[in-house]
Design a binder for these strands. Structure first.
Lengths: 189, 189
DNA sequence: AAGAAACTAATTGCACAAAAATAGTTTCCA
DNA sequence: TGGAAACTATTTTTGTGCAATTAGTTTCTT
């Protein structure tokens, strides 16, 4: 793995441990390299953060592309899978936490918002396809979107999963399952 | 309406206008009575708040009882209706806002938490009945609970409804619709 | 009995300064 | 070339005194 990517992955780790208040010294220590080396790759902390956001979302887009182009899947299967792609990446980095950067790093916040928003384009067009095919009910897509996003947030904010001894993957599958079955028309059963 | 109830209802109004930082002077002005009169009914602000929480949740319990005892409803119909009862009361008072009282009024916060938690007893036992009847899938109930609660929070936190020109009732119906259909077994279709 | 208004003790918000932490640079060394 | 550590300018945090606000009480009035 190239240095640039190692730094980004290390940033995720240190972000998940220390929260958004990690220092560049923390990161250097975590990576076992000196700050000097970090600054040979990135001009400053903000640029590094921005690169991290792109890195994360590019990974998501890649996974989505796989789902969309897989010829063996029906539209409903595609929706079921694609609804799990972005949430799965939450395991690497709690994107919701990035919202807390609003004040200190408005640029990063804006980028996260923009990419979270545009990240739904593929999903939305899949759902619209499903609606045209008649397999998906005519629901308000923003509400569905909100339900998924809100549920994910809760996984991290509260300790529901721990309390109920449910793994993240199980919970995610169940949420997606409920949502997908909830938007199907009867005819597929 | 008796004085006690008038004060509680007035507190809701003033709470919704001024937020949780309303003063007792605000409340007295809103009610058109003097603080003295308020203090003849309640010993202090905290007690009044606690009484308000009980008042609200007792109202919810009452509505729930109607749904549960209605002999004309199937279990699924009951679930569909009961899932709308608590959310409907959010229109009177944003219970989510009460969470912000955590620091200043920990007692009230604890009471809200406790009643929000125990407020699910009826719903949970209905869902369990549905599962025994075989009309509801064997899902993790805490996850369903979390999905509904998280969605409601979002209605207030973000301006999704306004942006998409959806009324609260429409959105609520849609959320409940998706959740209920999402937990049904196939056999009811 | 209840409202209006004044009153007080306590709490809160705020300005501002001192102290601590940190981003980014530089020096030295292997 | 890159790590360790020292360094500095800036930012963030913390503490404090002062002014404003407010919960709860009291007094006076109708």
């Amino acid at each position: 793995m190239e240095l640039r990517e190692e730094i980004l992955v290390g940033t995720m780790r240190v972000f998940n441990i220390k929260g958004l208040k990690f220092t560049m010294d923390d990161l250097a220590r975590e990576l076992g390299i000196s700050k000097k080396t970090i600054y040979t790759v990135f001009d400053n902390k903000e640029d590094m953060f921005l690169a991290l956001v792109d890195y994360l979302f590019d990974g998501i887009k890649e996974e989505e592309a796989k789902v969309i182009t897989d010829p063996n899947l029906s539209t409903v299967d595609r929706i079921r899978k694609i609804l799990g792609v972005m949430p799965a990446s939450y395991r690497d980095l709690d994107l919701g936490q990035l919202y807390l950067l609003k004040d200190k790093y408005p640029k990063i916040y804006a980028k996260v918002e923009e990419r979270l928003e545009s990240g739904w384009e593929n999903t939305i067009s899949l759902i619209e396809t499903g609606q045209k095919e008649g397999v998906i009910r005519p629901i308000h897509i923003p509400i569905l979107k909100m339900m998924l996003e809100a549920s994910l947030e809760q996984f991290f904010r509260r300790d529901i999963l721990i309390k109920n001894k449910i793994t993240y993957q199980t919970a995610l599958d169940e949420v997606v399952g409920i949502l997908v079955d909830g938007i199907l028309t009867g005819q597929t059963h």
